[in-house]
């Protein structure tokens, strides 16, 4: 893949997002972070840094836009507006369907793996998932295509798989991180296993679960442009064709909305993470 400045910016964005949620290897750290107040402060500072980055990014996008206008790029991008709208619609659908499915499947799967009855297999499965996450998303798409052929379905499936892994892993780790004495005290007061799960384990794992969703959707949004390569459509079409035709305006017409979408998705998730998770288990507040 050509490392032109715009996809590089996308990669940066992805990296930034991944660092934002408890990432792959340092999930334990993320969990520990929930415990101490000082660590909460550290997390807050980290959040601030992420916000700062976002502003820098936004400023860069703005500068690029101004430059584009001056050089006559913007008018030629404007001519592509119908394509942009159509492809953006397709793009957002890819995100929503694959991301939504991944959440719907990933969270229950992760929670199920954390059940005591699954203890014997869970660690192995999580190891497999960990290896899975080291596979580049482009390779996942390629594998998906080799099984399901070309089109929307393999694209959604590939995106789904790439998005699923962090969600499962975090849901599992989140439930594992609930201190045993909470479960003991819930059991001792006469909660049924289901009540313990719904009233104690999931609420206390929610922050970590949410962080997984955020990481996963950042990966998802960052990968969707590649869906074009296996016939999935989306804004990647403009980007890659722009590269192929050396048409700078077309490439930007794909890259800019892609970048904005990534920022928007992460912003929305960050806000809901802040407001939806109760204060008692939310280290951000």
């Amino acid at each position: 893949m050509a490392r032109n400045p715009h996809t590089a910016a996308l990669d940066d964005l992805e990296a930034d997002n991944v660092a934002d949620g408890p990432p792959v290897g340092t999930l334990k750290a993320g969990v520990n972070r929930m415990a101490g107040a000082t660590r909460t402060l550290a997390a807050l500072a980290e959040g601030k840094a992420a916000t700062a980055w976002r502003w820098v990014l936004l400023a860069l996008v703005f500068a690029a836009g101004a430059w584009a206008w001056a050089s006559g790029l913007l008018p030629s991008m404007y001519d592509l507006r119908e394509d942009i709208v159509y492809l953006l619609d397709q793009h957002v659908r890819l995100v929503l369907i694959s991301g939504g499915l991944a959440i719907l499947v990933g969270i229950p799967l992760g929670v199920w793996l954390s059940r005591p009855s699954m203890r014997r297999y869970a660690e192995y499965l999580i190891q497999v998932l960990n290896i899975g996450t080291t596979i580049p998303t482009l390779a996942i798409l390629a594998l998906s295509m080799s099984i399901l052929g070309i089109g929307t379905l393999p694209a959604i499936f590939g995106l789904f798989v790439a998005t699923l892994l962090p969600i499962v892993r975090n849901a599992y780790a989140g439930c594992q991180s609930v201190p045993p004495h909470l479960i003991e005290s819930a059991t001792g007061m006469g909660m049924t296993p289901m009540q313990i799960l719904m009233r104690v384990e999931i609420p206390n794992a929610l922050f970590v679960i949410f962080a997984g969703v955020r990481t996963a959707l950042a990966i998802n949004v960052g990968t969707v442009p590649l869906a074009f390569l296996i016939g999935g459509g989306g804004l990647g079409e403009l980007i890659f064709q722009g590269i192929a035709l050396n048409d700078f305006a077309m490439m930007l017409a794909g890259a800019i909305p892609t970048a904005l979408l990534a920022i928007l998705v992460d912003f929305l998730l960050a806000q809901s993470q802040f407001w939806l998770i109760p204060r008692g288990v939310n280290p951000l507040r």
């Binding site: 201190p179 004495h181 909470l182 003991e184 005290s185 819930a186 059991t187 001792g188 007061m189 006469g190 909660m191 049924t192 009233r199 104690v200 609420p203 206390n204 929610l206 109760p278 008692g280 288990v281």
Partner: peptide
């Protein structure tokens, strides 16, 4: 389950639910 609801239980780690 019913038995435990009629017995008060206190542990050293307290076990208050942080989410409540």
């Amino acid at each position: 389950i019913e038995l435990r609801r009629t017995i008060g239980y206190v542990i050293q780690q307290i076990g208050l639910f942080p989410n409540k």
